[in-house]
Design a protein around this nucleic acid. Sequence first.
RNA 1: GCCCCUGUAGCUCAGCAGGAUAGAGCAACUGACUUCUAAUCAGUGUGUCGCAGGUUCGAAUCCUGCCGGGGGCACCA
Length: 540
Amino acid sequence: MDNISQYKPIKQYLKERILDVLVEFEITDVIPKIEVPSDIDNGDFSTNIAMVSAKRLNKKPLELAVQIADTLTGKKLKYINSVSAVAPGFINFYLNFDWLYELIDYVLSAGIDSFSKLNLGDNKTVQIEFVSANPTGPLHVGNGWWAAYGDSLARLLVRCGYNVSKEYYVNDTGGQIRTLGESILASKNKTEPPNNGYKGGYIDDLAEQYSGGDDVNEVGKWAADIILKEIKETLLKMHVEYDSWYSQNYIEQGGAVEETLNELTQKGLIYQKEGATYLASEQLGDTRDRVLIKSNGDITYTCGDIAYHRDKFKRRGFDKVIDVFGADHHGQIASLKSAMKALDVDPSNLEIQIGQMLSLVGGKMSKRAGNFVKLDDLLDEIGVDAARLMSLMTSIDQATVLDIDLIKSTSMENPVYYLQYAYARICSIQQKATEENFGLPKIDDINLKLLVDQREISLLKVISEFEDVMVDAADSRRPHKITAWARQVAAAFHSFYHDCRVLDTNEIELSTARLALVEATKISLAVALEILGVTLLEHM
RNA sequence: GCCCCUGUAGCUCAGCAGGAUAGAGCAACUGACUUCUAAUCAGUGUGUCGCAGGUUCGAAUCCUGCCGGGGGCACCA
């Protein structure tokens, strides 16, 4: 494990060396930014520090860059072949390959369990709530989109040292359950469905199965139970497992609403108007005051939602809560945040990730209109891996138009095969290596310096980026950045595979070094695919 | 009217805590399998980064305005 503790990412190393020099120039309040130049001619890494601080020192950027570069050169630092300053003031670092060989050493020592296992979260408890679709119909592909997002975000945060709990909030009470019951009865009795009722084949199927009485609430509950069971099965098929299924009914009946109302009343934030009970939320940042109890005595959804979120923080004690909502629920943010403030919960611990809407080429998806593509059907057609990866290719900020026919055709399936194929090729090499007795000796006995091919170096450089990508993806809550990296490493590996024969009995030493590189690739790719929830295939 | 996203190649989208010549996949066209899997690789072409200003040594990226697209603005959930 020595190698793990000794290992220092190259960017950090360069940053520290630059900081050392900056002190000599009496620059102390700037953190140098280290970048990989887009053009390799500009070095392996570069920094803009001279341009950023030139003005303050009353110097020309290039002049300062030259001075810093010369100072760095004078120190004859490890890894660094040369440092040069170039207009308009970049300082470029040209490195030898030692840092890449140390990277292999590090990745192999850490292994799949420890490599890129970060501690950004400090073991804080985070709850991620996602999908939470009403049990009034089967999940559609839009629900699946966010299921993949929420689940991969959870996996990512776990890897980054958070203690994560995944939750599905089941809206098993209220008007929509009633409407569901009415819709089923209408289908059974061949009468007109209610306004805003649910249509679609599943309603008729349920009506056929139903044999009980005519109480709409009873019918609705009966149907919701069946639908929820199907939802759970579909999510399992998508490899999404929840830690808890929390019931709205429980929130409303189990004392949470009462406690919440009491607390708000004590704080003097409740008032009556026109027979309804209001929360004075506008003064706390909401766009208007909210009705908590309707004039007919029913609890509003907002009221239940506030109690639910209070429950998350105050009863269950999560440090942080991340809700994944569709853009159509954007309006809830101000209400929830202001309500948390009212309840003395720091609103910044309630993070709401808004996913932009998904639509089909033919139009929007709506359960009420009976116009949607079932997630279940999509999973059957293209498989869980393609479905998940497809959802994790783009940012959730991007409203996406799905062409279902295109997805079903082979073209959109390629990205997932591309990743899985890279992994399968790795396994294939390793299996052959075992069969032909290419042992992988201890890391210290491998001559990694034989890895000098451009393909090998490129592959290593991609692997070296992984931890930065993890941090970025986790901090920004954007797991699709992992997808982008995975595609890069797969591309680099495929190119390497094509140009560099790994197993060659005439070049045992080189083969051994390449096997180490292959293993490092395997470890990093496996971590990425595990986060994305894409199955690792040893054969294809 | 107000609020949240968004406008990048023919299509779908990356890139956006500012950085050097704007990328990938798909689609089109060329080449490469007696080899560890060709579900692969190598190559060819494509852009007023919606428009106009501003900040900056430097803007697809930040700010302002305008135009276009999506989603909200309930005693629905």
